[in-house]
Write a protein that binds this DNA or RNA. Sequence first.
DNA 1: GTGAAAATTTGAACCGATCCAACGAAAGTG
DNA 2: CACTTTCGTTGGATCGGTTCAAATTTTCAC
Lengths: 365, 365
Amino acid sequence: MAPLTSGKTLTSGKTRPIRLADIARAAGVSHGTASNVFARPEIVREEVRERVKAAAAAMGYGGPDPKGRLLRAGKVNAIGVASAEPLSYFFDDPFARVMMASISQACDATGAGISLVSAANKEQLAWNIQSALVDGFIVFCVEGGSRLVELARERKLPFVALDDLDSDDNSVAAIGVDNVAGAGLAARHLTELGHRRFAVLALPCADSGFGPTTQAHVEKALYSGTRDRLRGYFAELSRSGIDISRVPIYETVNNEESVWAGLDHIFAGSEKPTAILAMSDRMALHTLDWLRRHDIAVPSDVSVVGFDGVPEGVVSKPPLTTVAQPIAEMGRRAVKAILEYDGSLSRQLLPVDLVVRASSGPSPT
Amino acid sequence: MAPLTSGKTLTSGKTRPIRLADIARAAGVSHGTASNVFARPEIVREEVRERVKAAAAAMGYGGPDPKGRLLRAGKVNAIGVASAEPLSYFFDDPFARVMMASISQACDATGAGISLVSAANKEQLAWNIQSALVDGFIVFCVEGGSRLVELARERKLPFVALDDLDSDDNSVAAIGVDNVAGAGLAARHLTELGHRRFAVLALPCADSGFGPTTQAHVEKALYSGTRDRLRGYFAELSRSGIDISRVPIYETVNNEESVWAGLDHIFAGSEKPTAILAMSDRMALHTLDWLRRHDIAVPSDVSVVGFDGVPEGVVSKPPLTTVAQPIAEMGRRAVKAILEYDGSLSRQLLPVDLVVRASSGPSPT
DNA sequence: GTGAAAATTTGAACCGATCCAACGAAAGTG
DNA sequence: CACTTTCGTTGGATCGGTTCAAATTTTCAC
């Protein structure tokens, strides 16, 4: 039906895109008027308007190029969401997905677009952040968060770190939850159920891969959430008189392989835990899979408590007890912080909720 | 630690961003040289380079603004992914998610970014497409696809329609599957199992909401996939001697509410089906939920066959028999089509696969 | 027919960079 | 010492629009 006009014109073998100026010349009007025809048609006399539109159609003009407009307007009307993981993280990871759904709803409501910024390797990341066409960044702070924050800060654009309220560096705008308190809630829930033998599955602490680790090592974690959650667990366990130095900690990379390796390791010992504290629901869900495959009953043999509150935890077998973050609220606030940036530095600590479902129960011993 | 320089300077109450030209002046070099310091530092004499960098740091310059670079460079190095649904569709819908994961992997591999383009309402959509800073579009063609395609076409940028190989309009680059053949596979699978009483859950045909519909109405569906899948179902059922005029078709909007309403309607009749043909896995999964809640056993009472092949179908109760699209391959090809656009019009029809799992079995009658 | 008010149109300035031909200075060559 | 290279730097052109004050035309009242 519509002709396959290319928007380019063939001149001596070379092809050049059509500009607004070309249309203006063809229609015999000034650039200003031509621009108005597209941007504010109502102020242009009808006859002229039609003439310009006809010229545009005849030449296969695709409308004003946003690249040009952008420079003058200054605002891109899009926010960048950055992570140090590959782009597919946004669609694969349960926590990221819920967060993104919330962010996108907030963006939709205000008409802002979303640019996904990420990278397979570190050099690429820097370039991608530096050249992202956005009005601000929301930074996902898992693994490699601090570098990301540094890069975002250098752009001198509004940005907010998600879930990385590092108490050591409060010069960064951030929205997060009280990881210490949340972890404490999880630990207390289990001690109240009579559990005395624990194991912790930790989020990545360094770029070092996965394996058994120690409290001292976790204290140096790049991602403050990892550190704070461990502090929360241990503070609560100590209060119940549990010798935390004997609680095994296994550092994972938040995927099935490393979680299963961790459980293999933890359950190989002689003093098997009756309760697993997982720093993410994703790890907790992989744990449930592993336990089922090893015919260990949940929660009668082993209790599992996650962290995050992702929807998959509702339908897992059994449904997962977890520390729920107000993910939707965090997303909304992050978008608001970028879009309504006023130069101030907002650091918001949101409360978490212990959601008790069927993966936790009284200690068998 | 780092000072909270704002990248803006305060002049008589007004704030103005710092430009490369400001740095050049401060450092006493031409703007050409200042540009080189950031873009090709190796061709600038070290002494000068350091001086410029120092000036930039002192003034709180955040590096060359990509907005400026963009205009000159022409390429955005990002592809737009458009849908007529709200932005959260990309993170909520199982099919979209798998597709996006594949698209994002392909983008990561080439260093391209992703811009999500979408809109709550129609006017917004047009504007968003017209002003998206992208090098090309991948258009998700469910509901409202044709309008989207038209909008994308007007931008005169490379674009490819996903899953909308409308046989009536082959002037559009598209990557899709053989919907007729795929639907045929599903229907034949069920007829071979002895089923004779069918019901069809259809994807949206018009903006008209949901409710019972007819073959004639579906023929006019905006989204060609809906039409073609019905054609495929009915061609195969007819071949088995089934009176297709008596097969109920219920149009849904691909969500739980409309699917459940459809099933309420279908199972309210006297001639209850033994087999449900769902045009998407999402609908099929909602169907499994509905059947479980109504104590209708799958597959012994009713068989269900979906369409898409999303991962959720593997872990559903029972696992879903479906017509699997090569989603990952489609995503890869779509990205390739945009990034390596050479002016040609590629229309690719990919094969589908019947994946038999536990949601289909012999007819009870 | 005239002057003022209203409606349109114009054209230059600007947005913030990159690119490149030309130029100047330093280094190398015979 | 004159002459060619080589290296670094300069400044103007360009990318494709938008904006706004000023100029021009049209409309309208008297």
